[in-house]
């Protein structure tokens, strides 16, 4: 109950900071508009490029909401003493994390729906045709967002100050986007790059989403010869566990200066 309240408070704070709402929501939409306009042809077999790139944009949106946003926002809150103040109350620590998770979930859902609506209306995106595919969509997105959120909270302890957080986080996110098949067809990347990307969650989120938005026959073109949904679940699950462990062991409520 207290966690729901904390989540509602986080969401309310997000909705009231107008720039944040506009940029968070508009960014993936802007990207799909650019990509769908550049690559307006077919990827093969009567399937449009939009169908491929929308998976990368959804995955990027989820990673931005979970990983980047928290890894930047939490150090700022730490700097400003918000965390220290909460730490001085009887609030159970997990409530703070739960509030962030609910906020990320809210943003992720809103942003993904907006992206799908725009892509469907403007670029003839074909939505998943069966309940089974929607279910896959749901669990890949939920598991991927959870992994990114936990990693974002864990990563937030790395930046010394709120000011340095964007500099620490942005390159990591950008590199992952380039090597995970967000901006390019994944199999067109050098093999070593594919192998590096396979260690991190973003590649598997994209791949899981491709299983949803591309015809089943496209699975044969994946590096593993299929969409490997089992592996997707396994890797994303592993990152959830690792992220949670790091959150619980390394999270700092006060700045280093505070001791």
């Amino acid at each position: 109950m207290i966690a729901l309240r904390q989540g509602a408070l986080e969401i309310r704070q997000f909705l009231r900071s107008r720039e944040q709402v506009v940029f968070t929501m508009a960014f993936p939409v802007l990207m799909i508009v650019i990509f769908a306009s550049i690559f307006d042809g077919e990827i093969g077999g009567g399937v449009r490029f939009t169908q491929y790139f929308v998976t990368g944009m959804i995955a990027t949106g989820l990673m931005t909401a979970g990983f980047q946003a928290l890894a930047i926002q939490i150090p700022i809150e730490r700097d400003r003493g918000v965390l220290k103040r909460l730490r001085g109350t009887p609030m159970p620590p997990w409530v703070y994390f739960a509030g962030k998770v609910l906020m990320v979930a809210f943003i992720a859902v809103a942003e993904t729906i907006l992206l799908l609506v725009v892509a469907t209306l403007l670029f003839d995106l074909e939505l998943p045709s069966s309940g089974r595919l929607w279910l896959t969509f749901l669990w890949v997105a939920a598991l991927g967002t959870t992994a990114c959120t936990l990693c974002g909270i864990a990563f937030s302890s790395l930046a010394r100050t709120g000011r340095s957080a964007p500099a620490v986080v942005t390159p990591v996110a950008l590199v992952l986007q380039f090597i995970s098949g967000v901006f390019f067809v994944f199999t067109s990347l050098p093999t070593w790059m594919q192998q590096v990307a396979a260690v991190f969650p973003l590649k598997w989120m994209c791949q899981g989403l491709r299983a949803v938005f591309l015809p089943g026959s496209f699975g044969a073109q994946e590096p593993g010869g299929s969409f490997e949904l089992g592996t997707v679940a396994l890797v994303l699950g592993a990152w959830c566990v690792l992220g949670l462990a790091l959150c619980l062991t390394t999270f700092r409520w006060t700045t280093r200066r505070d001791g």
Binding site: L9, V82, R85
Partner: peptide, 25 residues
């Protein structure tokens, strides 16, 4: 605990912040 210069919750109202903290106790 009233600390030196702790962060506020900029976008929330005074009433919202105080009511929220009340739930912790």
């Amino acid at each position: 605990v009233v600390l030196q210069g702790t962060g506020e919750f900029d976008e929330l109202t005074v009433g919202e912040v105080v009511a929220h903290f009340a739930r912790f106790y």
